[in-house]
């Protein structure tokens, strides 16, 4: 009896405290004017979507070209090694040639001083800035993020990335864009420090037989490429997953039959 009273008392105190809080007057919430302007990413259909979707290798190679010629000026890709490019359809000699065009940090083996050497396939993409301070200094105190994980690190992933790249526009009347920033309704803060990277069609020249390099096309290609870069094992994962699921479906069926069999024996025994 005493225990029950203690329990009522403790419960009563918690409930009372919560009800006081629930009925306490709320301070008026100041609506963030940017909130109304914010847009959710467009829904885009991708070759790699779905259980059986695979990356479009030609698209990834075009996307790599866009990254190399446009994004790489400010954004690193530090978790991708040149050898990984074999996955998107480059041959080993092509990868070696791509790597050779990059200079990576090294140490002079005679003087011990910092120097550079041409990259080899096992090297990772060098970042455009030596450190964060230098990156901020060169970009009006905004830090261009490394792009190796960008589609996993942003809600909406590749849809968001594409929406952001093509989403620049004129601000609506009454919206003031601060100096040095650009209007982009897909960006969480509406005003983004990155100038429109894809400014005009044909900014990148695609090889013969590839689609027209419109802004939309370049944006899709580089978004697909960065989606691959965020998880190069995604195709392997889905392929393994399909095999695992087929195996498990069969095993589930068999184990169900075995279970019914075992219990059927019990029932037949019970009836005799």
């Amino acid at each position: 009896m005493l225990g029950r009273l203690i329990s009522y008392a403790i419960g009563g105190v918690f409930v009372l405290t919560l009800l006081v809080a629930a009925f306490a007057p709320r301070e008026a919430v100041v609506e963030d004017p940017n909130h109304a302007l914010h847009k959710y990413p467009m829904k885009i259909s991708w070759a790699q979507d779905g259980v059986f979707g695979t990356f479009d290798r030609a698209q990834l190679q075009r996307g790599f070209q866009v990254y190399k010629e446009v994004c790489a000026a400010c954004h690193g890709l530090e978790r991708i090694a040149f050898r990984n490019l074999v996955d998107i359809g480059f041959s080993e000699p092509e990868v070696k040639a791509i790597a050779k065009a990059y200079e990576v940090a090294s140490i002079d083996d005679k003087t011990g001083e910092a120097s550079t050497r041409p990259a080899v396939a096992s090297d990772y993409f060098p970042s455009p800035y030596p450190n964060e301070v230098a990156a901020r200094a060169a970009n009006n105190n905004a830090l261009p993020p490394d792009l190796s994980l960008i589609t996993k690190a942003r809600q909406g992933g590749k849809d968001y990335l594409h929406s952001l790249l093509v989403g620049y526009g004129q601000p609506p009347a009454g919206h003031e864009v601060p100096e040095g920033l650009y209007y982009n309704p897909y960006f969480a803060n509406i005003n983004i420090a990155m100038p429109p990277p894809l400014a005009s069609a044909g900014q990148v020249t695609y090889a013969e037989g590839q689609p027209e390099p419109t802004i939309d096309q370049m944006s899709r290609d580089v978004s697909a490429f960065l989606d691959w870069a965020a998880e190069p094992k995604a195709e392997t994962r889905k392929r393994t997953g399909v095999a695992v699921m087929i195996f498990l479906l069969i095993l589930t069926g068999l184990s169900y039959l075995a279970y019914r069999r075992v219990w059927a024996e019990l029932k037949s025994r019970g009836a005799h």
Binding site: L251, L257, R261
Partner: peptide, 12 residues
């Protein structure tokens, strides 16, 4: 059925 279930589980 028992053998098949056991064999499948073992393979997994």
């Amino acid at each position: 059925i028992y053998v098949a279930t056991g064999a499948f589980a073992a393979a997994g």
